[in-house]
Amino acid sequence: MANVMNVHSSVPTDAGSRHPVAIAGLNHWFGEGEARKQVIFDVNMRIEGGSLTILMGPSGSGKTTLLTLAGCLRDVQEGSVKMFGQELYGASERELVANRRRMGFIFQAHNLHESLTATQNVMMGLEVHGRDDRGRYLEASHHLLGLMGLGDRFDYLPSNLSGGQKQRVAVARALVGNPDIVFADEPTAALDKDSGGRVIRMLKRLGAERGTTTVMVTHDNRILELADRVVTLEDGRVVDDSAH
């Protein structure tokens, strides 16, 4: 992982802190007026630095909402979400964006830019940190794609890649900037067993070597045994929280 870039080394980081994500008394609602519906009920959770935490639960249980709240993609309505010690409740857009730059996102859908090649898509995960030596960005992007088994697909457009290959490019995009924390939603859903295993092993390795924390929503039972912790939600409440 030597070529994964430490692009935000200048950002104050406490990624190695014991609990990069600390959630307390979190409630969340969707809709307004009579249509207002509570989807998260008094969730309390601390996530260990460098760990792989899996969120499980049936559809509509609130796991994805929890992921987006912790991922600075939604405003915290009630309760506290601290990211690297910084309170997200009432945080400004600028602060949320600065936090997001320390994160890596892997979506269920790859969401690759159709006009950009695999390399260019991965480079987007680096360019967000500003102008730098493009040669270094290129080298880091190629390195990550190589680790994903896409060394012969650098200049391919997404339309010329299989579903699994696209997802691996998306994973490379999320990891190339050496994020402090990775939020992933069903990252292995589109991958075969080998590719899925490769992605999870890489996340685990990042956790062990660099202290990268991973929070993942998945229904993939093959991964459960690799997780440090599995949190199960039902109807917006944590019903089980077990360390592995």
Binding site: G71, L73, M103, F105, N111, H113, E114, M124
Partner: peptide, 15 residues
């Protein structure tokens, strides 16, 4: 047509 890609870039931290 590129709303999802732009939303992805927003998530990554582009302003």
């Amino acid at each position: 047509d590129h709303m999802r890609e732009y939303a992805t870039f927003k998530a990554i931290g582009y302003r």
